[in-house]
């Protein structure tokens, strides 16, 4: 077992307070580094309990159009992995409690390379990693050394993860489990709450880890409904979609950009607190 992390403490606190967590996703550097830093700093006050910070990648194979576009905006603005880690370090100077999970694809980590990435992520104050294209079969590459260094390795489990497969997914997972509510890419189909409930119950029977549900959660009402069957709800595409709508015709940030995202976070958080 790893020592207690900010993620563990945050879920324990949610449990004590008897409420469901809001996990928010934004892409680091989208639409530009300065705006992205303001967003990141504003998320906890707006109501985010856990922050997923996307590491942009040129080929986000598991993502729908909203996050693909978000990733490409960040890359176009010149976002590098060092900038993403520096954003976390800067955030940590002001907030030592809100967990940050870096989420993305393996290649930018692999070429960093892995050992240096783990060292720098820990130093920056990162708490966990979600690497979409690293299944348990590849745990020796990143998951095991990252966990040994004190990071939580958070795994996605999906509707296709049957009971036979579930133990493999749970092994070496820590922090929380991310239940992908649909078979598909991010930000597309809406999840069916009854279906999600069945799966979450099955997962809960196999682990004591908190379960967050995401993929396709767009509105405060959906968040509220899913909050009743899970420990936390993840919202990503809707937030980067709101960001995209606030940009000017050249794709640049406007005075509306930061409030557009944080206001949506606020209404999602309010709906979850009412759940």
């Amino acid at each position: 077992m790893t020592k207690e992390t900010r993620i563990d403490r945050r879920f324990a606190k949610l449990k004590r307070e008897g409420r469901k967590g809001l996990v928010t996703f934004i892409t680091a550097g989208d639409p530009d580094l300065e705006t992205s830093k303001k967003l990141l700093l504003g998320l906890p006050k707006a109501g985010a309990d856990v922050i997923e910070l996307g590491m942009p990648f040129s080929d986000p194979m598991a993502d729908g159009p909203a996050i693909q576009a978000s990733s490409l905006r960040a890359l176009k603005a010149g976002q590098k992995m060092r900038d993403t880690l520096a954003m976390v370090a800067e955030f940590r100077k002001q907030d030592d409690d809100t967990p940050i999970v870096l989420m993305g694809y393996y290649n930018p980590i692999y070429v960093y390379p892995n050992a240096q990435f783990i060292t720098d992520a820990v130093a920056a104050g990162v708490d966990g990693l979600i690497v979409v294209d690293l299944p348990p079969e590849a745990d020796d590459e990143l998951c095991v050394p990252a966990t040994a260094a004190g990071l939580n390795f958070i795994r996605l489990t999906t509707p296709t993860t049957d009971s036979k497969r579930l133990p493999a997914v749970l092994s070496n997972t820590s922090g929380f489990l991310y239940y992908v509510s649909i078979t598909g890419i991010t930000g597309t189909a809406a999840p069916d709450v009854n279906n999600v409930q069945k799966h979450v119950q099955r997962i809960k029977a196999a682990t004591t880890l908190p379960v967050a549900v995401g993929f396709g959660v767009k509105t405060p009402d959906q968040a509220k409904a899913l909050g009743q069957v899970a420990d936390a709800v993840v919202v990503g595409s809707a937030l980067v979609g709101a960001l995209e709508k606030s940009l000017d015709s050249d794709g640049r940030s406007t005075s509306k950009t930061v409030p557009a995202v944080l206001d949506l976070v606020g209404s999602l958080a309010a709906a979850l607190r009412a759940a």
Partner: peptide
């Protein structure tokens, strides 16, 4: 048996696809 040719190959896919 894990699909490796030396360091190359493997199965780097999203969990949804792993069972398939």
């Amino acid at each position: 048996e894990r699909g490796h040719f030396g360091i190359f190959g493997g199965r780097f896919v999203a969990e949804t696809l792993m069972p398939l």
